[in-house]
Design a protein around this nucleic acid. Structure first.
Lengths: 231, 231
DNA sequence: ACAAAAGTGTTCGTACTACACCCATGA
DNA sequence: TCATGGGTGTAGTACGAACACTTTTGT
Protein backbone atom coordinates (compact mmCIF):
# COMPACT_ATOMS: atom_id res chain seq x y z
CA UNK A 1 0.00 0.00 0.00
CA UNK A 2 1.31 3.44 -0.94
CA UNK A 3 1.95 5.81 1.88
CA UNK A 4 1.80 9.04 -0.08
CA UNK A 5 -1.92 9.26 0.56
CA UNK A 6 -2.91 11.33 -2.42
CA UNK A 7 -6.29 12.91 -1.92
CA UNK A 8 -8.59 12.57 -4.86
CA UNK A 9 -12.14 13.50 -5.39
CA UNK A 10 -13.98 10.31 -4.94
CA UNK A 11 -16.34 8.87 -2.42
CA UNK A 12 -17.42 5.61 -0.85
CA UNK A 13 -20.93 4.51 -0.46
CA UNK A 14 -22.77 1.57 0.97
CA UNK A 15 -25.62 -0.06 -0.87
CA UNK A 16 -27.88 -2.50 0.89
CA UNK A 17 -29.84 -5.35 -0.56
CA UNK A 18 -32.46 -5.87 2.12
CA UNK A 19 -34.23 -9.17 1.78
CA UNK A 20 -37.53 -10.05 3.34
CA UNK A 21 -40.03 -12.87 2.99
CA UNK A 22 -43.73 -12.36 2.74
CA UNK A 23 -46.65 -14.23 1.25
CA UNK A 24 -44.40 -17.00 0.04
CA UNK A 25 -42.25 -14.63 -1.96
CA UNK A 26 -38.73 -13.36 -1.53
CA UNK A 27 -38.78 -9.58 -1.52
CA UNK A 28 -36.28 -6.83 -1.64
CA UNK A 29 -36.64 -3.33 -0.26
CA UNK A 30 -36.35 -0.62 -2.89
CA UNK A 31 -36.66 3.12 -2.76
CA UNK A 32 -38.03 5.42 -5.39
CA UNK A 33 -35.59 8.23 -5.93
CA UNK A 34 -36.68 11.82 -5.62
CA UNK A 35 -33.56 13.46 -6.98
CA UNK A 36 -31.37 13.43 -10.00
CA UNK A 37 -29.63 11.49 -11.24
CA UNK A 38 -32.10 8.71 -11.81
CA UNK A 39 -35.00 10.75 -10.45
CA UNK A 40 -38.14 8.58 -10.27
CA UNK A 41 -36.13 5.39 -10.73
CA UNK A 42 -36.14 2.57 -8.26
CA UNK A 43 -32.87 1.92 -6.49
CA UNK A 44 -31.32 -0.01 -3.68
CA UNK A 45 -31.14 1.95 -0.46
CA UNK A 46 -27.69 3.26 0.17
CA UNK A 47 -25.73 6.20 1.36
CA UNK A 48 -22.31 7.67 1.72
CA UNK A 49 -19.84 6.41 4.28
CA UNK A 50 -18.90 9.09 6.78
CA UNK A 51 -15.28 9.76 7.34
CA UNK A 52 -15.33 8.73 10.97
CA UNK A 53 -17.17 5.45 10.75
CA UNK A 54 -16.12 2.03 9.62
CA UNK A 55 -17.90 0.53 6.67
CA UNK A 56 -19.62 -1.95 8.97
CA UNK A 57 -20.86 0.89 11.14
CA UNK A 58 -21.99 2.74 8.07
CA UNK A 59 -23.92 -0.28 6.83
CA UNK A 60 -25.60 -0.65 10.20
CA UNK A 61 -26.43 3.03 10.39
CA UNK A 62 -27.85 3.19 6.90
CA UNK A 63 -30.01 0.16 7.46
CA UNK A 64 -31.27 1.73 10.67
CA UNK A 65 -32.05 5.03 9.01
CA UNK A 66 -34.02 3.31 6.32
CA UNK A 67 -35.87 0.73 8.33
CA UNK A 68 -35.58 1.53 12.01
CA UNK A 69 -34.06 -1.88 12.62
CA UNK A 70 -31.09 -2.83 14.79
CA UNK A 71 -29.04 -5.98 15.12
CA UNK A 72 -29.75 -7.37 11.74
CA UNK A 73 -27.71 -10.02 10.07
CA UNK A 74 -25.63 -8.03 7.57
CA UNK A 75 -23.00 -9.39 5.34
CA UNK A 76 -20.67 -7.66 2.98
CA UNK A 77 -20.64 -9.43 -0.36
CA UNK A 78 -18.90 -7.37 -3.01
CA UNK A 79 -17.47 -3.98 -3.86
CA UNK A 80 -18.33 -2.31 -7.14
CA UNK A 81 -15.87 0.13 -8.59
CA UNK A 82 -16.43 0.76 -12.27
CA UNK A 83 -15.27 4.25 -13.16
CA UNK A 84 -18.54 5.37 -14.70
CA UNK A 85 -20.93 3.64 -12.37
CA UNK A 86 -22.07 6.96 -10.92
CA UNK A 87 -22.74 9.72 -13.45
CA UNK A 88 -21.68 12.56 -11.20
CA UNK A 89 -18.30 11.37 -10.02
CA UNK A 90 -16.21 8.53 -8.86
CA UNK A 91 -18.05 6.54 -6.28
CA UNK A 92 -16.97 3.11 -5.17
CA UNK A 93 -19.68 1.26 -3.35
CA UNK A 94 -19.46 -1.58 -0.88
CA UNK A 95 -22.53 -3.75 -1.06
CA UNK A 96 -24.10 -5.55 1.89
CA UNK A 97 -27.12 -7.66 2.20
CA UNK A 98 -29.38 -7.80 5.18
CA UNK A 99 -32.08 -10.26 6.12
CA UNK A 100 -35.08 -8.99 8.03
CA UNK A 101 -38.44 -10.21 9.22
CA UNK A 102 -41.14 -8.33 7.45
CA UNK A 103 -43.90 -9.92 9.50
CA UNK A 104 -45.34 -7.61 12.15
CA UNK A 105 -43.06 -4.88 10.92
CA UNK A 106 -44.46 -1.41 10.87
CA UNK A 107 -44.32 -0.14 7.34
CA UNK A 108 -40.87 0.92 6.24
CA UNK A 109 -40.60 4.59 5.50
CA UNK A 110 -37.50 6.36 4.30
CA UNK A 111 -36.31 9.04 6.68
CA UNK A 112 -34.19 10.72 4.06
CA UNK A 113 -35.45 13.27 1.64
CA UNK A 114 -33.90 11.81 -1.45
CA UNK A 115 -36.44 9.02 -1.62
CA UNK A 116 -40.13 9.41 -2.30
CA UNK A 117 -41.00 6.10 -0.78
CA UNK A 118 -39.78 2.65 0.00
CA UNK A 119 -41.46 -0.57 -0.99
CA UNK A 120 -41.00 -4.30 -0.85
CA UNK A 121 -40.81 -5.77 -4.31
CA UNK A 122 -40.80 -9.38 -5.31
CA UNK A 123 -37.39 -10.40 -6.57
CA UNK A 124 -39.09 -11.93 -9.59
CA UNK A 125 -40.64 -8.70 -10.77
CA UNK A 126 -37.98 -6.08 -10.32
CA UNK A 127 -37.96 -2.98 -12.48
CA UNK A 128 -34.76 -1.75 -14.04
CA UNK A 129 -32.78 -0.15 -11.24
CA UNK A 130 -30.74 3.03 -11.02
CA UNK A 131 -26.97 3.05 -11.43
CA UNK A 132 -25.53 -0.47 -11.54
CA UNK A 133 -27.99 -1.63 -8.93
CA UNK A 134 -29.44 -4.37 -11.08
CA UNK A 135 -26.00 -5.90 -11.26
CA UNK A 136 -25.52 -5.48 -7.53
CA UNK A 137 -28.80 -7.18 -6.89
CA UNK A 138 -27.94 -10.10 -9.16
CA UNK A 139 -24.67 -10.62 -7.36
CA UNK A 140 -26.38 -10.46 -4.00
CA UNK A 141 -28.84 -13.19 -4.76
CA UNK A 142 -26.15 -15.49 -6.06
CA UNK A 143 -24.18 -15.05 -2.86
CA UNK A 144 -27.32 -15.50 -0.80
CA UNK A 145 -28.08 -18.78 -2.54
CA UNK A 146 -24.63 -20.09 -1.95
CA UNK A 147 -24.58 -19.03 1.66
CA UNK A 148 -27.91 -20.68 2.29
CA UNK A 149 -26.15 -23.97 1.78
CA UNK A 150 -23.80 -23.63 4.71
CA UNK A 151 -25.19 -21.00 7.07
CA UNK A 152 -28.49 -20.81 8.95
CA UNK A 153 -29.54 -17.57 7.35
CA UNK A 154 -33.07 -18.53 6.47
CA UNK A 155 -34.23 -18.09 10.06
CA UNK A 156 -33.44 -14.40 9.94
CA UNK A 157 -36.22 -14.01 7.41
CA UNK A 158 -38.92 -15.95 9.24
CA UNK A 159 -40.91 -15.07 12.33
CA UNK A 160 -39.48 -16.58 15.47
CA UNK A 161 -42.03 -19.37 15.37
CA UNK A 162 -42.60 -20.97 12.03
CA UNK A 163 -43.86 -24.13 10.44
CA UNK A 164 -41.75 -26.46 8.37
CA UNK A 165 -43.80 -25.59 5.33
CA UNK A 166 -42.99 -21.92 5.75
CA UNK A 167 -39.34 -22.80 6.03
CA UNK A 168 -39.54 -24.87 2.90
CA UNK A 169 -41.33 -22.16 0.94
CA UNK A 170 -38.55 -19.78 1.90
CA UNK A 171 -35.86 -22.15 0.69
CA UNK A 172 -37.77 -22.60 -2.52
CA UNK A 173 -38.09 -18.87 -2.99
CA UNK A 174 -34.39 -18.26 -2.48
CA UNK A 175 -33.21 -21.18 -4.56
CA UNK A 176 -35.94 -20.66 -7.13
CA UNK A 177 -36.83 -24.30 -7.35
CA UNK A 178 -39.23 -26.81 -5.89
CA UNK A 179 -38.04 -29.09 -3.11
CA UNK A 180 -39.40 -32.42 -2.00
CA UNK A 181 -41.43 -32.10 1.18
CA UNK A 182 -40.39 -35.34 2.83
CA UNK A 183 -36.73 -35.00 2.02
CA UNK A 184 -36.69 -31.39 3.14
CA UNK A 185 -38.25 -32.15 6.51
CA UNK A 186 -36.07 -35.16 7.12
CA UNK A 187 -32.94 -33.16 6.42
CA UNK A 188 -33.89 -30.11 8.44
CA UNK A 189 -34.89 -32.14 11.46
CA UNK A 190 -31.77 -34.29 11.21
CA UNK A 191 -29.59 -31.26 11.87
CA UNK A 192 -30.98 -31.10 15.35
CA UNK A 193 -31.14 -27.35 15.70
CA UNK A 194 -34.87 -26.98 15.23
CA UNK A 195 -36.80 -26.96 18.45
CA UNK A 196 -40.32 -28.32 18.26
CA UNK A 197 -42.72 -26.18 20.28
CA UNK A 198 -45.88 -27.24 22.12
CA UNK A 199 -47.81 -24.94 19.94
CA UNK A 200 -49.63 -25.03 16.67
CA UNK A 201 -50.50 -22.69 13.92
CA UNK A 202 -53.74 -20.73 14.46
CA UNK A 203 -56.36 -19.27 12.25
CA UNK A 204 -56.03 -21.66 9.37
CA UNK A 205 -58.97 -23.54 7.96
CA UNK A 206 -57.18 -26.84 7.74
CA UNK A 207 -55.09 -29.04 9.95
CA UNK A 208 -52.80 -26.80 11.97
CA UNK A 209 -49.06 -27.37 11.64
CA UNK A 210 -46.60 -27.64 14.49
CA UNK A 211 -44.49 -24.60 15.19
CA UNK A 212 -40.72 -24.72 15.47
CA UNK A 213 -38.05 -22.30 16.38
CA UNK A 214 -34.41 -22.10 15.49
CA UNK A 215 -32.25 -23.05 18.46
CA UNK A 216 -29.17 -20.90 18.09
CA UNK A 217 -27.47 -22.46 21.08
CA UNK A 218 -27.75 -25.95 19.65
CA UNK A 219 -26.67 -24.74 16.27
CA UNK A 220 -23.41 -23.38 17.59
CA UNK A 221 -22.81 -26.46 19.66
CA UNK A 222 -23.25 -28.68 16.64
CA UNK A 223 -21.37 -26.64 14.10
CA UNK A 224 -18.71 -24.76 15.99
CA UNK A 225 -16.09 -27.33 15.07
CA UNK A 226 -17.08 -27.65 11.47
CA UNK A 227 -16.91 -23.95 10.84
CA UNK A 228 -13.25 -23.77 11.72
CA UNK A 229 -11.89 -26.53 9.53
CA UNK A 230 -8.47 -27.51 10.90
CA UNK A 231 -5.66 -25.93 12.82
CA UNK B 1 -27.23 6.26 -2.77
CA UNK B 2 -26.88 9.96 -2.01
CA UNK B 3 -26.40 12.24 -4.91
CA UNK B 4 -24.86 15.14 -3.10
CA UNK B 5 -21.43 13.68 -3.65
CA UNK B 6 -19.60 15.24 -0.74
CA UNK B 7 -15.86 15.17 -1.30
CA UNK B 8 -13.94 13.97 1.68
CA UNK B 9 -10.32 13.27 2.25
CA UNK B 10 -10.08 9.58 1.94
CA UNK B 11 -8.62 7.13 -0.48
CA UNK B 12 -9.09 3.66 -1.89
CA UNK B 13 -6.44 1.12 -2.18
CA UNK B 14 -6.08 -2.40 -3.48
CA UNK B 15 -4.20 -5.03 -1.54
CA UNK B 16 -3.26 -8.28 -3.17
CA UNK B 17 -2.75 -11.64 -1.59
CA UNK B 18 -0.64 -13.37 -4.21
CA UNK B 19 -0.48 -17.09 -3.70
CA UNK B 20 2.09 -19.39 -5.19
CA UNK B 21 3.07 -23.01 -4.70
CA UNK B 22 6.65 -24.16 -4.44
CA UNK B 23 8.47 -27.05 -2.86
CA UNK B 24 5.25 -28.48 -1.55
CA UNK B 25 4.37 -25.34 0.34
CA UNK B 26 1.75 -22.70 -0.17
CA UNK B 27 3.45 -19.32 -0.36
CA UNK B 28 2.40 -15.74 -0.38
CA UNK B 29 4.25 -12.81 -1.90
CA UNK B 30 5.20 -10.15 0.61
CA UNK B 31 7.12 -6.92 0.30
CA UNK B 32 9.39 -5.37 2.85
CA UNK B 33 8.44 -1.74 3.25
CA UNK B 34 10.97 0.99 2.78
CA UNK B 35 8.89 3.89 4.03
CA UNK B 36 6.97 4.97 7.05
CA UNK B 37 4.56 4.03 8.36
CA UNK B 38 5.56 0.45 9.04
CA UNK B 39 9.05 0.96 7.62
CA UNK B 40 10.92 -2.36 7.59
CA UNK B 41 7.72 -4.32 8.15
CA UNK B 42 6.48 -6.97 5.81
CA UNK B 43 3.24 -6.20 4.05
CA UNK B 44 0.95 -7.37 1.32
CA UNK B 45 1.62 -5.66 -1.98
CA UNK B 46 -0.91 -2.99 -2.71
CA UNK B 47 -1.40 0.45 -4.05
CA UNK B 48 -3.82 3.25 -4.51
CA UNK B 49 -6.63 3.10 -7.03
CA UNK B 50 -6.32 5.81 -9.64
CA UNK B 51 -9.27 7.97 -10.28
CA UNK B 52 -9.71 6.87 -13.86
CA UNK B 53 -9.50 3.12 -13.47
CA UNK B 54 -11.93 0.57 -12.20
CA UNK B 55 -10.96 -1.43 -9.17
CA UNK B 56 -10.53 -4.52 -11.34
CA UNK B 57 -8.19 -2.61 -13.63
CA UNK B 58 -6.33 -1.31 -10.61
CA UNK B 59 -5.90 -4.80 -9.24
CA UNK B 60 -4.59 -6.02 -12.58
CA UNK B 61 -2.23 -3.09 -12.91
CA UNK B 62 -0.85 -3.43 -9.41
CA UNK B 63 -0.25 -7.12 -9.84
CA UNK B 64 1.53 -6.40 -13.08
CA UNK B 65 3.71 -3.71 -11.57
CA UNK B 66 4.75 -6.01 -8.78
CA UNK B 67 5.25 -9.23 -10.67
CA UNK B 68 5.31 -8.53 -14.38
CA UNK B 69 2.42 -10.94 -14.86
CA UNK B 70 -0.67 -10.58 -16.99
CA UNK B 71 -3.88 -12.53 -17.22
CA UNK B 72 -3.82 -13.94 -13.77
CA UNK B 73 -6.81 -15.35 -12.01
CA UNK B 74 -7.76 -12.55 -9.64
CA UNK B 75 -10.72 -12.52 -7.37
CA UNK B 76 -12.04 -9.83 -5.10
CA UNK B 77 -12.79 -11.27 -1.70
CA UNK B 78 -13.42 -8.55 0.86
CA UNK B 79 -13.22 -4.83 1.53
CA UNK B 80 -11.68 -3.57 4.73
CA UNK B 81 -12.82 -0.24 6.07
CA UNK B 82 -11.99 0.23 9.74
CA UNK B 83 -11.51 3.91 10.45
CA UNK B 84 -8.06 3.53 11.96
CA UNK B 85 -6.68 0.85 9.74
CA UNK B 86 -4.22 3.26 8.15
CA UNK B 87 -2.38 5.56 10.57
CA UNK B 88 -2.11 8.48 8.18
CA UNK B 89 -5.67 8.85 7.03
CA UNK B 90 -8.81 7.17 5.97
CA UNK B 91 -8.06 4.44 3.49
CA UNK B 92 -10.55 1.80 2.53
CA UNK B 93 -8.95 -1.14 0.81
CA UNK B 94 -10.41 -3.69 -1.53
CA UNK B 95 -8.60 -6.98 -1.23
CA UNK B 96 -8.02 -9.39 -4.08
CA UNK B 97 -6.24 -12.63 -4.27
CA UNK B 98 -4.28 -13.88 -7.23
CA UNK B 99 -2.96 -17.31 -8.02
CA UNK B 100 0.26 -17.57 -9.95
CA UNK B 101 2.75 -20.18 -11.05
CA UNK B 102 6.04 -19.60 -9.33
CA UNK B 103 7.79 -22.30 -11.31
CA UNK B 104 10.02 -20.98 -14.03
CA UNK B 105 9.20 -17.48 -12.94
CA UNK B 106 11.99 -14.96 -13.04
CA UNK B 107 12.48 -13.62 -9.58
CA UNK B 108 9.83 -11.11 -8.55
CA UNK B 109 11.23 -7.66 -7.98
CA UNK B 110 9.23 -4.68 -6.88
CA UNK B 111 9.30 -1.87 -9.38
CA UNK B 112 8.16 0.70 -6.86
CA UNK B 113 10.45 2.53 -4.53
CA UNK B 114 8.44 2.03 -1.41
CA UNK B 115 9.48 -1.59 -1.09
CA UNK B 116 12.99 -2.83 -0.40
CA UNK B 117 12.30 -6.24 -1.77
CA UNK B 118 9.69 -8.84 -2.41
CA UNK B 119 9.80 -12.43 -1.25
CA UNK B 120 7.75 -15.57 -1.25
CA UNK B 121 6.98 -16.67 2.28
CA UNK B 122 5.39 -19.86 3.44
CA UNK B 123 1.88 -19.24 4.71
CA UNK B 124 2.78 -21.21 7.80
CA UNK B 125 5.60 -18.93 8.87
CA UNK B 126 4.35 -15.44 8.28
CA UNK B 127 5.70 -12.55 10.29
CA UNK B 128 3.38 -9.97 11.77
CA UNK B 129 2.29 -7.81 8.89
CA UNK B 130 1.85 -4.07 8.51
CA UNK B 131 -1.54 -2.38 8.89
CA UNK B 132 -4.35 -4.91 9.14
CA UNK B 133 -2.69 -7.13 6.59
CA UNK B 134 -2.56 -10.13 8.87
CA UNK B 135 -6.32 -10.00 9.10
CA UNK B 136 -6.61 -9.55 5.34
CA UNK B 137 -4.41 -12.56 4.81
CA UNK B 138 -6.44 -14.71 7.19
CA UNK B 139 -9.63 -13.82 5.40
CA UNK B 140 -8.06 -14.58 2.04
CA UNK B 141 -7.03 -18.08 2.94
CA UNK B 142 -10.44 -18.90 4.31
CA UNK B 143 -12.04 -17.77 1.08
CA UNK B 144 -9.44 -19.66 -0.92
CA UNK B 145 -10.18 -22.86 0.96
CA UNK B 146 -13.85 -22.56 0.41
CA UNK B 147 -13.48 -21.72 -3.25
CA UNK B 148 -11.22 -24.70 -3.77
CA UNK B 149 -14.24 -26.88 -3.14
CA UNK B 150 -16.22 -25.66 -6.11
CA UNK B 151 -13.84 -24.01 -8.55
CA UNK B 152 -10.82 -25.35 -10.42
CA UNK B 153 -8.43 -22.83 -8.95
CA UNK B 154 -5.67 -25.22 -8.00
CA UNK B 155 -4.47 -25.47 -11.59
CA UNK B 156 -3.58 -21.80 -11.63
CA UNK B 157 -0.88 -22.55 -9.10
CA UNK B 158 0.68 -25.54 -10.81
CA UNK B 159 2.83 -25.73 -13.91
CA UNK B 160 0.86 -26.58 -17.00
CA UNK B 161 1.94 -30.21 -16.77
CA UNK B 162 1.79 -31.75 -13.36
CA UNK B 163 1.57 -35.08 -11.60
CA UNK B 164 -1.33 -36.17 -9.47
CA UNK B 165 0.92 -36.15 -6.45
CA UNK B 166 1.79 -32.51 -7.03
CA UNK B 167 -1.90 -31.72 -7.30
CA UNK B 168 -2.59 -33.57 -4.09
CA UNK B 169 0.22 -31.82 -2.23
CA UNK B 170 -1.25 -28.51 -3.30
CA UNK B 171 -4.70 -29.43 -2.04
CA UNK B 172 -3.15 -30.54 1.21
CA UNK B 173 -1.23 -27.30 1.54
CA UNK B 174 -4.29 -25.16 0.96
CA UNK B 175 -6.60 -27.19 3.15
CA UNK B 176 -3.90 -27.81 5.71
CA UNK B 177 -4.71 -31.46 6.09
CA UNK B 178 -3.64 -34.82 4.75
CA UNK B 179 -5.72 -36.48 2.07
CA UNK B 180 -5.95 -40.11 1.10
CA UNK B 181 -4.00 -40.83 -2.07
CA UNK B 182 -6.34 -43.34 -3.61
CA UNK B 183 -9.47 -41.43 -2.87
CA UNK B 184 -7.98 -38.21 -4.10
CA UNK B 185 -6.92 -39.70 -7.43
CA UNK B 186 -10.19 -41.48 -7.93
CA UNK B 187 -12.13 -38.32 -7.36
CA UNK B 188 -9.99 -36.05 -9.49
CA UNK B 189 -9.98 -38.44 -12.41
CA UNK B 190 -13.71 -39.03 -12.10
CA UNK B 191 -14.38 -35.38 -12.88
CA UNK B 192 -13.10 -35.99 -16.36
CA UNK B 193 -11.33 -32.67 -16.86
CA UNK B 194 -7.79 -33.95 -16.38
CA UNK B 195 -6.06 -34.90 -19.59
CA UNK B 196 -3.49 -37.62 -19.31
CA UNK B 197 -0.41 -36.83 -21.38
CA UNK B 198 1.94 -39.21 -23.15
CA UNK B 199 4.69 -37.88 -21.03
CA UNK B 200 6.33 -38.62 -17.75
CA UNK B 201 8.14 -36.75 -15.09
CA UNK B 202 11.89 -36.38 -15.66
CA UNK B 203 14.90 -36.09 -13.46
CA UNK B 204 13.58 -37.97 -10.48
CA UNK B 205 15.44 -40.87 -8.94
CA UNK B 206 12.42 -43.05 -8.63
CA UNK B 207 9.60 -44.25 -10.80
CA UNK B 208 8.50 -41.34 -12.96
CA UNK B 209 4.90 -40.27 -12.64
CA UNK B 210 2.52 -39.56 -15.49
CA UNK B 211 1.91 -35.96 -16.33
CA UNK B 212 -1.54 -34.46 -16.66
CA UNK B 213 -2.94 -31.16 -17.68
CA UNK B 214 -6.12 -29.37 -16.85
CA UNK B 215 -8.51 -29.40 -19.78
CA UNK B 216 -10.34 -26.13 -19.54
CA UNK B 217 -12.56 -26.93 -22.47
CA UNK B 218 -13.81 -30.12 -20.90
CA UNK B 219 -14.23 -28.44 -17.58
CA UNK B 220 -16.59 -25.85 -18.99
CA UNK B 221 -18.47 -28.46 -20.95
CA UNK B 222 -19.02 -30.52 -17.82
CA UNK B 223 -19.80 -27.76 -15.38
CA UNK B 224 -21.43 -25.01 -17.37
CA UNK B 225 -24.87 -26.15 -16.34
CA UNK B 226 -24.04 -26.70 -12.73
CA UNK B 227 -22.56 -23.27 -12.31
CA UNK B 228 -25.79 -21.56 -13.23
CA UNK B 229 -28.22 -23.38 -10.97
CA UNK B 230 -31.70 -22.87 -12.44
CA UNK B 231 -33.45 -20.50 -14.74
C1' DA C 1 -68.51 -34.61 3.65
C1' DC C 2 -65.24 -32.07 1.65
C1' DA C 3 -61.30 -29.17 0.93
C1' DA C 4 -56.75 -28.19 2.22
C1' DA C 5 -52.56 -28.88 3.88
C1' DA C 6 -49.92 -31.79 7.59
C1' DG C 7 -47.36 -35.48 8.27
C1' DT C 8 -44.86 -39.74 7.39
C1' DG C 9 -40.85 -44.42 5.13
C1' DT C 10 -38.63 -46.96 1.92
C1' DT C 11 -35.82 -47.91 -1.91
C1' DC C 12 -32.11 -46.88 -4.88
C1' DG C 13 -28.07 -44.97 -6.52
C1' DT C 14 -24.12 -42.13 -5.79
C1' DA C 15 -20.35 -40.42 -3.25
C1' DC C 16 -17.15 -40.48 0.53
C1' DT C 17 -14.23 -43.19 3.88
C1' DA C 18 -10.89 -46.30 5.37
C1' DC C 19 -7.39 -49.14 4.30
C1' DA C 20 -2.26 -51.98 2.23
C1' DC C 21 0.37 -53.84 -1.14
C1' DC C 22 3.03 -54.45 -5.51
C1' DC C 23 5.43 -51.86 -9.28
C1' DA C 24 8.77 -49.16 -11.85
C1' DT C 25 12.75 -46.51 -11.84
C1' DG C 26 17.29 -44.44 -10.94
C1' DA C 27 21.19 -44.52 -8.12
C1' DT D 1 19.45 -54.45 -4.65
C1' DC D 2 17.61 -50.90 -2.43
C1' DA D 3 15.17 -46.74 -1.63
C1' DT D 4 11.58 -43.91 -3.16
C1' DG D 5 7.47 -42.60 -4.51
C1' DG D 6 3.85 -44.37 -8.34
C1' DG D 7 -0.07 -46.64 -8.91
C1' DT D 8 -4.14 -49.48 -7.86
C1' DG D 9 -9.48 -51.89 -5.63
C1' DT D 10 -12.91 -53.05 -2.41
C1' DA D 11 -16.16 -52.96 1.23
C1' DG D 12 -18.89 -50.26 4.35
C1' DT D 13 -21.39 -46.19 5.29
C1' DA D 14 -23.74 -41.84 4.72
C1' DC D 15 -26.37 -38.90 2.03
C1' DG D 16 -29.48 -37.23 -1.50
C1' DA D 17 -33.33 -38.32 -4.80
C1' DA D 18 -37.55 -40.20 -6.11
C1' DC D 19 -41.98 -41.24 -4.89
C1' DA D 20 -47.95 -41.47 -2.65
C1' DC D 21 -50.98 -42.05 0.74
C1' DT D 22 -53.33 -41.26 5.32
C1' DT D 23 -54.49 -37.88 8.97
C1' DT D 24 -56.26 -33.77 10.95
C1' DT D 25 -58.95 -29.77 11.06
C1' DG D 26 -62.21 -26.06 9.90
C1' DT D 27 -66.08 -24.88 7.18
Amino acid sequence: METGLPKFDSAFSIDCVIFGFEAGELKVLLIERNEDPFKDWWALPGNMVENNESIEDAATRILYELTGLHDMHMEQFHTFGAVQRHPLGRVITVAYYALIRIIGQKEVKPVTKYAKKAAWRSVNELPKLAYDHSEIFETSIQKLRRRLGYQPIAFELLPEKFTLTQLQLLYEAILNKKLDKRNFRKKMLSYGFLKELDEKQKGVSYRAAKLYKFDRRKYYKIFQNDLTPEN
